[in-house]
Nucleic acid binder design. Structure first.
Lengths: 140, 140
DNA sequence: CTATTTGCAAATGGTTTGCGTTAGC
DNA sequence: GCTAACGCAAACCATTTGCAAATAG
């Protein structure tokens, strides 16, 4: 499944213009598994696109989120982190350095959406965040 | 387990002054299961304490978080929500109205902290967020 | 009495928006 | 050519911080 192809198809289907900026933002995100912030994507892209604006990066990410091409990772704190990995997975968050990594490990990966309701809610998605410390930050 | 008593004990043990403001903020939060924001606590408290400042509410919540009397609920978006319920539980978040409720339902409640490491991380806490729609928001 | 905590106002920092211009389709 | 999308700068809004005055212990 080419992410690029999905991007192009979505643009076509949803009547979104496939602009240079949108493509660049999407490819940068899709090629980066570190759950970058809008700002860090912007910093890297501005080398290639000097006139790119941070507002466009935000607008692009927001649009792609709306179209289901991108997800937001629940931040422990502060700036939103984005993720182009749409496979069900969990997030490891390091409390010390803020690093976020994907995992998919039982039993966390085995949770199924409840069929009925829970507490009156119809559950559509399950977010699992494993908070702790990464190897580098083990000793504070 | 009186929350009030825990608060007083923590203040004594950790040499935190038991001020009128801190007690008021804590009691307001502890008596409110809706995971209020700092701002909403502030709005309700200012009726009783006209000189109370929002900064104090934030500082108090931050201090109580540091002392383990309070937790922050991962917001879907926007302002931090606080929670004085320290029992392990999960959160139901309504995507339509933003409401957050506690639940503790298997299998989500049955997740245990992994003994070893996962992806190189030492996991200290597991956050489970069930995203969906509450009964009131079922039809948009 | 002295160190903490408060209130206030100003600063911060991530994100959003208004608006005139540019460029997909 | 018509609009959606862009760039820019200003606006927003939750949260934090500096500092002088108030107060808990």
């Amino acid at each position: 499944v080419s992410l690029r192809a999905a991007f192009e198809r979505t643009c076509r289907e949803r009547r979104l213009r496939r602009t240079t900026q949108r493509l660049a933002v999407f490819e940068e995100l899709a090629s980066d598994p570190s759950h970058p912030t809008a700002e860090s994507l912007f910093d890297r892209l501005r080398a290639r696109f000097p006139t790119l604006s941070l507002a466009t990066v935000y607008r692009t990410l927001e649009a792609m989120k709306r179209e289901g091409l991108v997800r937001t990772v629940q931040p422990v704190h502060e700036p939103a982190r984005f993720d182009a990995n749409l496979d069900p997975h969990q997030h490891l968050v390091c409390r010390a350095c803020g690093r976020i990594e994907d995992v998919s490990e039982a039993p966390f990966s085995g949770l199924r959406l409840p069929a009925g309701r829970i507490g009156g809610f119809r559950v559509e998605e399950i977010g699992v965040t494993l908070l702790g410390r990464c190897g580098d930050c083990e000793g504070r």
